[in-house]
Every structure is written in C-alpha cells, then in structure tokens.
Amino acid sequence: MATKLTKAQYEEVARFLAQVPPTRQSLRKLRERFPSQSQSTLLSIFSQEYQKLIKRTHAKHHTPEATEAYYQSKLLRSFSDLCCKYQGQHECGAWTENNRYLNGVIKNAASPVLLDLANEVDFAPSLMARIVLEKFLQEQEGSIPSKTLINSMLRDPSQIPDRILANQIYQCTVNDYCYGPLVDCIKHAVGHEHEVLLQEMLLEKNISFLAEDQLRAKGYDKTPDFILEVPVAVEGHIIHWIESKASFGDECSHQAYLHDQFWSYWNRFGPGLVIYWYGFIEELDCHRNRGILLKDCFPTDIVTL
C-alpha cells in the first residue's frame, strides 16, 4: 500500500479527520475511506492531526475557569465518605446537580465520567486526567505537586489514594490513542524497533557506521541515529548519515525536524538521508540538491564508495 502522499492527498485525509472525533470508530472509518493507503500511515496521520488540534486548543482547557469546571474540590473525597455523609440529606441532590464528576460517580462509580467529559469538550483524556489529578494532589498536600509524582501516578493509578478517582484516571489513560503514558511507551518502543531494523539492514549491507550512543560517548551532543564511517551514494546523492523516523512526515513535523535536527546534522556531518517509515508528503522531498534526501524505506540501490 501507498505510504507517500501528494500534498493534495494528504490534505484530503486531514479534512476528513477534521470532521470526526478522535475515536477508534473514526480510525476505522478513515481506513474505509482511504483503502489504498497504508494503515500505519493513516494511523500516524490520525495521531499527528489530533495532536495539532490539542495544541491549538490547549490554552483554553487550562484557564482557571476551565480547570475549576472540570474539577470541583469536593469531588476529592472518597466515594464511600460521600455516600455516608450525604445519604438521605436533601441538600445533597442540589449540591451534586452542578458537579458533573460527582453526580456521575454517585450514580455509577465505574462509569467513565472523566473520559466522557474529555470527549465532550474535545480534549485528550490523559490531559484531562492530569488536570484533575493535579488539583486532587494539590488539595491533599496543600501545595503544587511535582511533575514526577503526577507522572508516576498517571503511569500507575493504583498509587492514587482515592480509589474512585484512580479508576477514572485509569479509564482515561487506557482510552487515549494519542497522549498519555501508554502511548508514550508504544511510541518509544516503535521508534526503537525501527532503529534496530535500520541497524540490521546496514549490517546486512556491510556498511560500517557509528550509532547514536557511540557518538554520544565521543562527546557529540546532537547526532543522527547513524553516521556512516564510509559515505554511500543513494540515487546519485552522497549520504554521510541516516536518521530514522517512525512517523509520517507532514509539513509541520518535517519543518520542525529541519530546524531542530536535520540542518544541524548537515552542518556537522554533511548530506544525509531521512527515512520516514510511515511515509511523507512527496513535495517535502525538495532539499536533495542541498543535501537532505527523504525516503519511506531502506534504499535498495545503495552504491558503496
């Protein structure tokens, strides 16, 4: 299946994604709408487009008004305490009426109240969970919690002292397809897998190289994944280094990589090759003559020098 897309094809996919929510059902519809495209390519675009949406709307979800609306201080009490304290009291109904989270968990403690709220306001479930957890810890401790503690509890919700909130946090993290600790682990594993795959291909071709960890040991602070000890030629272009990207190369991410990484590699080590394993927009491969070549797979026509 195709992995490289023209700009027009990519924009068609992006327009489709702008009209659907970031759910598994939408991903299924995306595959049905574009059957000729690689599923991995579509999944990567799906994730990247959703991340762009979250970045555009991130600020509005972190205003004091928004965070207070998502979280009420009284929701931090354990479910059992709430039931004991307010059971049979008339004012309980009036109090819970405007508290979306509390009203939901009192009706059904296992219901995905936070997850539903995140989906309703088009916010990443894991990020919604982070907001609520941070305010919970802040009230418990009386001070702003450290990022280390928050990250640890998001990775392992069993550490959260409120069991109802722990379950809500868990539901958010396991149902978030673009953010959160599970997604981070998957992305890290996939990225490492493709680096290992690239290394094995280089070894099969008897191409000598220095890997990133070897380069760091030599004192380099910013390096590509592999520097070739003897340059090779690919499609008539000399290659000194290769960078592996287990993602789709859209215009936004590629421009960021050019600015933050690729041109720095070019300045230090000469021309190189970037492999976007899940494809890229064809028009972005426009810097070949300047020394940056794009491919969506390991080259088959390598010429050793």
Rank of each mutant, 00 (worst) to 15 (best):
R268W: 00
H254S: 03
F262R: 00
L284P: 08
V274S: 07
G291C: 09
S253L: 13
Y276M: 07
L293W: 12
D260H: 09
G291T: 07
S253H: 03
C252G: 00
A256R: 07
R288T: 12
G270D: 11
L273E: 06
D250I: 08
F280T: 03
S247D: 14
D285R: 10
R290G: 01
S253N: 13
D285S: 15
I275V: 13
E251T: 12
L258Q: 10
L258S: 00
N267F: 02
P271S: 15
P271F: 10
Q255R: 08
H259D: 12
L293A: 04
D260I: 01
Y265V: 03
K295T: 10
Q261P: 09
Q255K: 09
I292Y: 09
A256G: 01
R268A: 12
Y276F: 15
G270C: 10
F248D: 08
D285V: 10
Y257G: 00
D260Y: 05
G279I: 11
S253D: 07
D250K: 02
S247Y: 04
Y265L: 04
W277N: 09
W263R: 11
W266A: 05
I275T: 05
S264P: 00
P271H: 04
H254W: 03
L294S: 05
D260E: 13
D285I: 09
S253V: 10
L293F: 15
N267Q: 15
C286L: 04
D260A: 06
P271W: 06
C286A: 14
E283M: 03
E282F: 01
C252F: 11
H259W: 05
R288N: 15
L273A: 11
L294Y: 15
V274I: 13
F248W: 14
S253F: 07
I292D: 06
A256W: 01
D285W: 10
G291Q: 12
W277L: 11
Y257I: 00
L284W: 06
D285H: 10
E283Q: 13
P271Y: 04
N267S: 12
V274H: 03
Y278M: 12
I292K: 09
Q261M: 07
L258I: 09
L258E: 09
G249F: 10
G249V: 08
Y265A: 01
I292M: 12
F262E: 00
H254G: 00
H254V: 05
Q255C: 02
N289I: 06
C286G: 02
H287N: 15
S253K: 14
